[in-house]
Design a protein around this nucleic acid. Structure first.
Ligand code: FES
Ligand code: FES
Lengths: 145, 145
DNA sequence: TATGATGTTGACTAGTTTAGTCGTGAATCT
DNA sequence: AGATTCACGACTAAACTAGTCAACATCATA
């Protein structure tokens, strides 16, 4: 398992900001409710995302959280790495300094890892927001039937 | 992290059997020494590999472990799944029954996971044994210089 | 300037997983 | 019988995960 609840929740939070953050900050209470994230836990994720530069927060009434850049300029790879640390599927892939002749199966995993990072880098928060809107649309449609 | 020491050691053990198992069973002591695996730990890995049907073990003097089929007929995917359980990078990917509209980022991971499995299924223990022989050759060459 | 809404932080926890170790016992060969 | 080798389950320490909680800092506004 590479991605746990941290990564999943954190990305959902950013998608939420991408979708609802256009008119002022969004409160963590709203994010937590819409995305089904424990509120106290969301705090920590927002803190990590803030430290990583994706989110700006303001306190006090009318405070909340917003993205620091356009959702199209934030890619999934960087977000997940900020939340989960290295995404390497094997420990040995984190040390680039090693000579490439460490273990017979390493090359397979190197390829898989490289491919994975390319795919993740190609997806932005804006893309995910579009998917999410579609998803909500389908959900609403299936309820109304 | 998907693969830990279990998966790494276990695969190394099978490669060892592929390389040195042609004239009779190989003892765990030898495997452990050649592959730098704690001997007591290797026991558990061999037990898992035996239960999964990759290895046959015989006790007593001249006993040891051997592959049950040709190294070319054992693929990395099945071995790693036997050792590590599901290789799914996200928990939600294990439940195929779920409707596909669970979470905005799931599709990316589905693609990555599918790709990963294809790559792993394409690599056999025989392939890895070849790599390992090359690796040892290079190592020997660099020492002799 | 008092008040309440809101975010910030670090300490703390229970449960799970990882990476092993150890000891006892069972099978096999000579 | 005795030596060798595997088999298996109990046990452990350390790390990680997914949180919870309480105390504190900031800000808008009346
Ligand atoms: S040590 Fe990294 S693949 Fe074996
Ligand atoms: S729940 Fe699986 S990707 Fe979000």
């Amino acid at each position: 398992m590479i991605i746990g609840s941290k990564g999943d929740y954190g990305v959902r939070a950013l998608i939420d900001l991408a979708m609802y953050g256009d008119d002022g900050p969004v409160q963590r209470t709203e994010i937590a409710r819409r995305q089904h994230i424990p509120e106290a836990y969301l705090d920590h994720l927002l803190a990590q995302l803030r430290r990583a530069g994706f989110v700006r927060s303001t306190r006090g009434p009318q405070g909340g959280h917003q993205l620091t850049r356009s959702p199209a300029a934030i890619c999934l790879l960087h977000v997940l790495e900020a939340l989960e640390g290295s995404l390497a599927p094997m420990p040995c892939l984190d040390h680039e300094d090693e000579d490439s002749t460490v273990c017979a199966q390493q090359w397979v995993w190197r390829e898989i890892y490289a491919d994975m990072r390319v795919r993740l880098a190609a997806v932005s928060m804006a893309d995910l927001a579009v998917r999410e809107r579609e998803r909500l649309g389908q959900l609403a449609a299936s309820y109304s039937i």
